[in-house]
């Protein structure tokens, strides 16, 4: 009599399935698509999938987990994945720009040209699906009578490059609205209170210095608060303060503040303004 050692039973089938799953190339699995990354790129390129609905972060994270699991992925394959991921990122960036109607291609005529060969065979092949179509139409009509809480929408778009996508959309919307409204340049400038004119800053300060020089010549001294009466734009305030500092540096005025947070008074220097009232 011979005794055979008892070998624990192995489930070769499940092991093989597991091994096959482990060896399988990386596949993206998202809401609207399951398949390899290159196919995803192709679908994004042909606009069959909206790139802004894809989370590149999730895809890269999933790939990271895949790499950890496999540990033996050749470097060229890894490089290829990142090349594809970069391509998707590029499409995301391109999606920041407005799309022209021509790009959408929505006006193509429906091309339902019937193939006229072996009609009978086709009719036979198609007959069950015509019944299925009617069943679906009936089911849909019946289902439409059952109202429900609306399902969640497709969810937020994924801004893999921060909120630039949202900002870009907003910017293009504003630009389009302005273009449509036909606003003239001066109207736009008026509405942008607080933003300095598009003149070189030095030139602005020089002009302000000349303006303040006239005030000193006329009045001898002036309080800064008198220059900043009312609600003046931030840009004007900034230029005024810089002009005052510049005049101090040039020795044209002296400034004095009696108390902390009190008013600042500027006096014309006698060397610079011999004829001024306060010299």
């Amino acid at each position: 009599m011979s005794f055979r050692p008892k070998v624990p039973e192995r489930d070769f089938m499940s092991e093989a399935v597991h091994l096959e799953a482990e060896q399988r190339p990386f596949e993206v699995s998202i809401e609207a698509f399951t398949g390899p990354v290159d196919l995803l790129c192709l679908l994004v390129e042909s606009k069959q999938i909206d790139v802004s609905r894809i989370s590149l972060t999730d895809i890269v994270r999933a790939y990271g987990q895949y790499l950890t699991r496999r540990a033996d992925v050749p470097l060229p394959q890894v490089a290829d994945f990142f090349h594809k991921a970069a391509t998707l990122l590029l499409y995301k960036v391109l999606a920041l720009f407005p799309v022209s109607v021509a790009d959408i291609g929505g006006n193509e005529p429906e091309d339902d040209s019937v193939f006229l060969d072996d009609v009978e065979r086709r009719m036979e092949l198609f007959a069950p699906f015509r019944v299925a179509r009617e069943i679906l139409i009936l089911r849909k009509e019946r289902q439409e009578r059952c109202l429900m809480r609306p399902a969640m929408d497709a969810g937020p778009v994924h801004y893999d490059i921060g909120d630039v996508y949202g900002l870009a959309s907003l910017w293009w919307d504003i630009a389009q609205r302005r273009r449509n409204s036909g606003s003239r340049t001066h109207e736009i400038e008026e509405s942008w209170i607080g933003v300095p004119d598009p003149v070189p800053e030095e030139r602005l300060i020089e002009t302000k210095v000349e303006e303040l020089t006239d005030v000193v010549l006329r009045e001898g001294e002036f309080s800064v608060s008198s220059l900043l009466k009312g609600s003046i734009p931030f840009g004007v305030l900034l230029v005024t303060l810089l002009a005052l500092l510049e005049m101090c540096r040039m020795g044209r005025i002296r400034i004095h503040q009696e108390e902390v947070f009190g008013d600042i008074v500027a006096y014309g220097c006698s060397d610079s303004f011999p004829g001024s009232q306060n010299s």
Partner: peptide
């Protein structure tokens, strides 16, 4: 959204 792409 009634149909999705399921690979090649």
């Amino acid at each position: 959204g009634l149909v999705r792409i399921a690979g090649r």
